[in-house]
Computed example of a mutant assay.
Amino acid sequence: MTQQSAAATPMSKEMQDCVNACMSCHSICEETMSSCLQMTDQAPTRIMRALMDCSEMTRMCADMMMRRSPLATEMCAMCAKACDLSAEACMSMPDDERMTRCAESCRRCAESCRAMAGATM
């Protein structure tokens, strides 16, 4: 299959679900970073770094899947790692509702990305 015909092929439901999970995770990571910046006590640097990495990776991963990049499979694997680290960092503040919601979104995205990383795109 040529690159042009691959892009013309409709996305599978699994790939579309992964793109949606990535975009949702990207959005909540951005919102959580904004919330962290407004906290009276500073959010730990580790959490902010994890959120930034996850936000960037999920956006890039979705973009690569949508354009059927030959690197999308590897990107999905890296994205899953970034999401796992972000979820872990967010759960270091388990009493914060936004952090908990962000961690849940990161976990869903990581699961979807891991599935896509094992799929042939």
Score class of each variant (00 low, 15 high):
residue 1 M to H: 09
residue 2 T to I: 02
residue 2 T to Q: 05
residue 5 S to I: 12
residue 6 A to K: 12
residue 9 T to E: 15
residue 10 P to L: 15
residue 11 M to T: 05
residue 14 E to K: 11
residue 15 M to C: 12
residue 16 Q to S: 11
residue 18 C to V: 06
residue 21 A to G: 07
residue 21 A to C: 08
residue 21 A to R: 01
residue 21 A to H: 02
residue 23 M to A: 09
residue 25 C to H: 06
residue 25 C to Q: 04
residue 26 H to K: 09
residue 26 H to A: 10
residue 30 E to T: 13
residue 31 E to R: 11
residue 34 S to L: 11
residue 35 S to E: 11
residue 35 S to Y: 15
residue 38 Q to F: 15
residue 42 Q to S: 14
residue 43 A to V: 03
residue 43 A to L: 04
residue 44 P to M: 08
residue 44 P to T: 07
residue 47 I to M: 13
residue 57 M to T: 12
residue 58 T to A: 10
residue 58 T to G: 04
residue 59 R to G: 10
residue 60 M to T: 09
residue 63 D to W: 04
residue 64 M to N: 03
residue 64 M to D: 04
residue 64 M to P: 00
residue 66 M to S: 13
residue 67 R to Y: 08
residue 70 P to T: 13
residue 72 A to N: 01
residue 73 T to Y: 00
residue 74 E to D: 14
residue 75 M to H: 00
residue 78 M to N: 14
residue 79 C to M: 07
residue 80 A to P: 01
residue 84 D to E: 13
residue 86 S to C: 15
residue 88 E to G: 08
residue 89 A to S: 11
residue 89 A to D: 07
residue 90 C to N: 07
residue 91 M to P: 01
residue 93 M to N: 06
residue 94 P to C: 04
residue 94 P to N: 02
residue 95 D to G: 14
residue 97 E to A: 15
residue 98 R to K: 13
residue 100 T to H: 12
residue 101 R to W: 10
residue 101 R to C: 13
residue 101 R to Y: 12
residue 106 C to Y: 02
residue 107 R to L: 08
residue 107 R to E: 06
residue 110 A to E: 05
residue 114 R to F: 01
residue 117 A to L: 05
residue 117 A to I: 03
residue 118 G to Y: 00
residue 121 M to K: 09
